[in-house]
Design a protein around this nucleic acid. Structure first.
Lengths: 75, 75
DNA sequence: GACTTTTATACCCGAACGGGAATATAATTA
DNA sequence: TAATTATATTCCCGTTCGGGTATAAAAGTC
């Protein structure tokens, strides 16, 4: 599993909005299965669906510099 | 066609690197067809492939605020 | 600890992605 | 303008996504 940035963003935004995956699926017009997969960081999802989810929060997928997690840093 | 941010970024980065679509396809391990589709802004591409392309420039798909183009602005 | 809600998996299957390769069209260059 | 190179488009087709639904597991509540 990877692609945490988008997965984490969607999950946290959804929770912040007080929605369950099921509710979010309905409101966004996406399938529950997809919402789950997306939040799990599934890498092979389709970009249009990802954007459909991000659009719920005024966001979209854009290029961003890859950044290491703190744990991976060289001391 | 939509998803210009990623499409434009890949196209311009590739050209800046002095690569043709064919060369870029080979180096990135992606299909020529996909590279073309991506640069055309095809929306239904798979995220892992998009990231595979962006990774060539140290980038990845991340959530970003949707921004209108200047032309769409209300005067 | 029993009950309710939410999240995680599984299955079936139509729809569509993407690779490779061939060809057409457009853009560069000599 | 002819020749060369790059980009766009098309075909065949194996692989896989994602919807819907059912169920299991986990998390949260009283």
């Amino acid at each position: 599993m990877r692609n945490d940035r988008i997965a984490v963003f969607v999950r946290e935004s959804r929770k912040a909005a007080g929605l369950t995956q099921a509710e979010f699926a309905i409101r966004s017009g996406l399938g529950l299965r997809f919402v789950h997969d997306l939040e799990q960081g599934k890498e092979t999802v389709r970009l249009d669906k990802v954007n459909q989810a991000l659009a719920m929060f005024g966001m979209e997928a854009v290029p961003g510099r890859i950044e290491r997690k703190a744990e991976d840093e060289q001391p």
